[in-house]
Design a protein around this nucleic acid. Structure first.
Lengths: 343, 343
DNA sequence: CTGAAAGCGCTTACAG
DNA sequence: CTGAAAGCGCTTACAG
């Protein structure tokens, strides 16, 4: 428990002024000419500042927040703060928030709507000025509730249709997958399958739809495997093996875990990339560049998404309306989807 | 700005009781027999609960925190919340904290002592019950200041000598590096060098010392390269090239970036692993298992470190003393440090 | 069992 | 330019 905490009263007493004056001095901005923009006299301000420094006084944001209804805290909820794209976005958000004097509360939903609700509740009770969150399956209703509380909200990575007042920032999930299919098609691949996940969220929906539509536009038959959350690794292995047995020429993985486990499965099955199985991955990981052959992948542009999400939230906290931002993802073409004569 | 916020007064009025009663009911625990442990009458409690539910009342933790001096918030500061080991530890901390009803503020110091100080200040002003942090170079003095405020503090991953009241959790940095050197020596390697970073923190110190001591114990000559923070990739490339030209047989990388960039450099230089250059890496990354050949590495055991750090902080927040925990890291031996006849 | 009142540490009209 | 006082939304002795 913090002891001997210096309060505004201590400063006031020591400086021989009222707490009003101390408060005014503490909240005064510095003008361009270096002076305080404060109605107090120069000498009083000086005296207060000295005492503040001497006592090492730090005003309680808790008390100020209670009075002003403004906390200078924002909340960030992602499915998993330890997962590459989310942690990178989180880093950027914190970075930008820090510059504006905000601190950040983080939480992981673990793709669980109940947990998301509890986190949102705790964040709201704890006092936040705004919230950036990645919805998970089944979280629509809960998020609608948040909206009623009029807390500025930006959805990140995944959208929820019909949420008029919320901001939203995500990558162009359809465009990127189309590029992947186009590229594979252009390099001669025809039997192209997708290993996705059993999960209803807008980003994955869009990726799956785009794959299906693009395949059909080429007159090809799409096929989507879906792994379960609890058993991603085994499921992915089985999918890759089944695909290989079927004579599938290329797989597209629209999520990071399926990407990594597919690479692992291909290695374990002793298949050559891309001769036996071409592969197009998603998200960012050093593996894609460092392994041999290099892997084609779609980058989430997590930093950019995080940055834009924060900027939008900031605007909303300042009273402006939200909006929708769609970021063009970066697509890297490696050796894993190259043309191959061996078929 | 949250509007129409329901307060304890609204509930009291609606239920026809005083705020005292509402507060008591809200803070009552459920007894094992399912009844509320509350001095109010059963019927009053019932009535209050109903109103609470009907109005969707959520007590403000800000106000409660101000009054009670307890916030149910902890702070976590790491060098970079987006970096593998730290984000994994952070995830675990948040997970455990959530179960105890705490929310977590995260911040990244970017290995910058000034920024660490600002973050700590913001966190303290914002009101935290405890702090878990990874010190960075030059942060000793600032951290001593925190100690004076008597905020429970656990150092994570890196230690600061002479900080009696702080808890500390880290892996056995000396033991793991010794294992790496022993393993290389046992497999016939003699010219073993280390590519480290220009940074004064206890963990890296320990790793470097352990390398030097173990080498000398074998009668071998240690040599440590040190990359600069701003230019890790280029520096690492130059180190690897220089090492190769010198006829170095194996390199040990005590940090993740040097590990990844060394692998990249080795690939770029067209060297074979382990014939031309063996390599022992640090931290966790899918690359180590997925690439060919598989890479030997020392795992940070980030989850375990995070978990222990939180548990210790919790004990300290409950009034117990801190302590020191040293966790044995897991070491994986891959093909990158295998015996090789080609020398 | 219940409630009036003080107080946590601030900010902010308002009066002087 | 300065200060007394009210109030933010809670909790908590204390009196009844």
């Amino acid at each position: 428990m913090p002891v001997n905490k210096i309060t505004i009263k201590d400063v006031a007493r020591e400086a021989g002024v009222s707490t009003t004056v101390v408060s005014k001095v503490m909240n005064a901005k510095r003008l361009p000419n270096g002076r305080l923009d404060c109605e107090t006299s120069e000498s009083t301000a000086q005296r207060v500042m000295e005492v503040v420094k001497r006592l090492d006084y730090h005003p309680s944001r808790v008390a100020a927040g209670l009075r002003k209804g403004k906390r200078f805290v924002i909340g960030v909820i992602t499915p998993d703060i330890s997962e590459g794209a989310f942690s990178e976005a989180g880093k950027k958000i914190e970075e930008a928030a820090y510059k504006d004097g905000y601190t950040v509360m983080f939480g992981s939903s673990n793709e669980n709507a109940g947990r998301l609700r509890n986190l949102m509740r705790a964040f709201c009770e704890s006092g936040i000025d705004g919230l950036i969150l990645t919805p998970c399956e089944g979280s629509e209703e809960i998020i609608h509730c948040i909206m009623e509380k009029k807390i500025p909200l930006v959805l990140c990575n995944r959208d929820i249709p019909g949420l008029a007042d919320a901001g939203c920032v995500h990558i162009d999930n359809k465009g990127s997958i189309k590029m992947a299919v186009d590229h594979l098609y252009g390099n001669g691949y025809r039997k192209i399958e997708m290993i996705s996940e059993n999960m209803k969220v807008s980003s994955l929906d869009d990726r799956e739809k785009s794959y299906t539509e693009t395949m059909e536009a080429y007159g090809l038959k799409p096929y989507i495997y879906r792994t379960d959350e609890k058993t991603v690794e085994e499921d992915t292995f089985r999918c890759v093996r089944e695909a290989a047995e079927k004579g599938t020429e290329a797989i597209i993985c629209p999520r990071i875990l399926q990407s990594l486990y597919s690479l692992k499965a291909i290695k374990r099955l002793g298949l050559r990339i891309p001769e036996d199985m071409a592969i197009f991955c998603h998200d960012d990981n050093p593996v894609f560049n460092l392994c041999h052959p290099t892997v084609s992948y779609i980058s989430q542009c997590a930093s950019e998404v995080g940055e834009e999400a924060y900027k939008m939230l900031k605007r909303m906290m300042d009273g402006e309306a939200g909006g929708k931002i769609v970021i063009s993802p970066k697509v890297f073409f490696g050796d894993s989807t190259e043309k191959t004569l061996v078929k």
